[in-house]
Design a protein around this nucleic acid. Structure first.
Length: 449
RNA sequence: GGCCCGAUGGCGGAGUGGUGACGUAACGGACUGCAAAUCCGUGCACCCGGGUUCGAUUCCCGGUCGGGCCUCCA
């Protein structure tokens, strides 16, 4: 099966042709760990988790290397550490833990590699030295800057003409820059700021260099897929692309660049920490939305499209997911089947998750219409398809609470006595405690409310 | 100002040069003591104006509206 992906470089869908099908490499820009992740931050994590699962399915689990970095040195982190009067490690460890827990709740598998900026300083320094030696970077006043003018195709990813960027530079140019678009590879640290020794004095890396250096170190000079949010396209990815190519004799950093769109909230405005309109993953989980519901909601739109994030969307996702659970009724024994061909085809077509969800719902209907071994086979296929999308066990089953046995008996007794007022009261109380009592043709059953 | 993207039914959201997904919500019905689940049915959706075409929601041009990036940002 050929996977086709939209490449930001060409603005077109292209077949994925890995440099080595036995080692497909993907890198996604991870979080700067200075605060809790909001649900918008979760979109790339979930989307690229689906892609990673698809790659594993197509190329074999052992033939995919997925790296997602942790940016654990950054001025926002330093600011927060100072505010709390603690070392930056206290901040970064706290929020990395939160991040992993939050993403885990959404069914996001940990990446194969999670390079940290602070443990990759030598790789960054090495790359910067190389760039200086090749004339692509210059040191000035304790800073090292990448000279954009030396990168011939600069602007190719975001399609920004060079001359224009120079002309439209809005910020007053720092005195140590040769041109406004030049960006910092290394900057000096004061004594009270975290820093590392380097050929240019004690300092810390700029933001863009970390990804380039860690990709080269962990995955190689040219990787198959590089992903991230649309807002990283420029300047972050543009800069990564340029510095990596310049450092590696022109070798492309990534064959395919992918960018996910934003979550919009009321008023069609993107969710953003700086706009103060964020909803954190933690808050949503605490509000009672399951991670699966959040995941399904995130996948309900194509990853490149904006997605309106509303309570209503969550309710709809929950309703759909409940139906899936009803159909799959996975008691843990539904292993060993292949995912549905339509689901696979939809995902292989630039991760068309809405089409994949459509196939899932069609499969659910087929399950309800089928019986016996055919139904079981469909349920297996459905469960496998769900896993490809990152949904674990699809089931409404819950462990029976201690009170349930009596409630079931009382409910059955009330019904056979035709004391329906009492039966309804028992059912209402059970539902208030999270259990829905259900009458089936085989008797009384229960499930998650 | 420059660059980029979008506009589909109550809502969310795919897709397609011709028979108009899917989900969810609503309503009617079957089933049910009643529910839930399931099943059946109902609702004249493709921003506007040109163009190409036998035929456009789908392609092209223009417009309007909305969003994003250009500064930290998924």
């Amino acid at each position: 099966m050929t996977i086709r992906l939209h490449n930001t470089l060409s603005r077109a869908k292209e077949p994925l042709v890995p440099g080595d099908p036995r080692r497909v490499t993907m890198y996604v820009c991870g979080p700067t760990v200075y605060d809790r992740a909001h649900i918008g931050n979760a979109r790339p994590a979930v989307v690229f988790d689906v892609l990673r699962r698809l790659l594993g399915h197509v190329y074999g689990e052992g033939h995919v290397v997925y790296a997602r970095n942790i940016t654990d040195i950054d001025d926002k982190i330093i600011t927060r550490a100072i505010a709390e009067g603690v070392p930056i490690e206290t901040i970064t460890q706290r929020f990395e833990s939160f991040y992993l827990a939050d993403m885990g709740a959404l069914g996001v598998r940990p990446p194969d590699l999670a390079p940290h900026a602070t443990t990759s300083i030598p790789a960054m320094v090495g790359m910067i030295e190389g760039l200086v030696a090749k004339g692509h970077a210059y040191a000035a006043q304790g800073h090292v800057l990448f000279e954009v003018a030396t990168a011939p195709d600069y602007g190719q990813l975001s399609r920004r003409p060079m001359d224009e960027m120079v002309a439209v530079a809005r910020v007053e140019m720092a005195p140590y820059k040769r041109a406004p678009a030049d960006f910092v590879l290394w900057k000096p640290s004061t004594d009270d700021q975290p820093g590392w020794d380097s050929p240019w004095g004690r300092g810390r890396p700029g933001w863009h260099i970390e990804c380039s250096a860690m990709i080269a170190e962990a995955l190689g000079e040219t990787i198959d897929i590089h992903g991230g949010g649309l807002d990283l396209q420029f300047p972050h990815h543009e800069n990564e692309l340029a510095q990596s190519a310049c450092a590696h004799g022109g070798a492309a950093l990534a064959r395919i660049w992918m960018h996910n769109g934003f979550l919009n909230i009321a008023g069609d405005t993107k969710m953003s920490k700086s706009l103060g309109n964020v909803v954190t993953v933690g808050a949503l989980l605490e509000a009672g939305w399951s991670g699966e519901v959040l995941r399904l909601a995130l996948l309900s739109a194509h990853y490149r499209q904006p997605l309106e994030w509303t309570e209503r969307l969550l309710g709809e996702a929950r309703a759909r997911l409940d139906r899936w659970c009803e159909a799959a009724d996975d008691d843990g024994s539904l292993d060993g089947a292949d995912p549905d061909a339509r689901v696979r085809a939809a995902l292989a077509d630039d991760l068309n998750t809405p089409a994949a969800l459509e196939a899932m719902s069609a499969l659910a209907s087929a399950i309800f219409a089928a019986e016996g071994t055919e139904r079981l086979a469909l349920r297996r296929q459905f469960a496998a398809s769900g896993r490809l999308l990152g949904f674990g066990r699809l089931s409404l089953q819950v462990p029976a609470p201690a009170w349930l046995e009596k409630a079931l008996a009382d409910y059955a007794a009330a019904r056979s006595a035709r004391d329906f007022a009492r039966a309804d009261a028992i059912r209402a109380e059970a539902e208030a405690n999270g259990i829905k009592l259900v009458v089936t043709k085989d008797g009384t059953s229960w499930r998650r409310a």
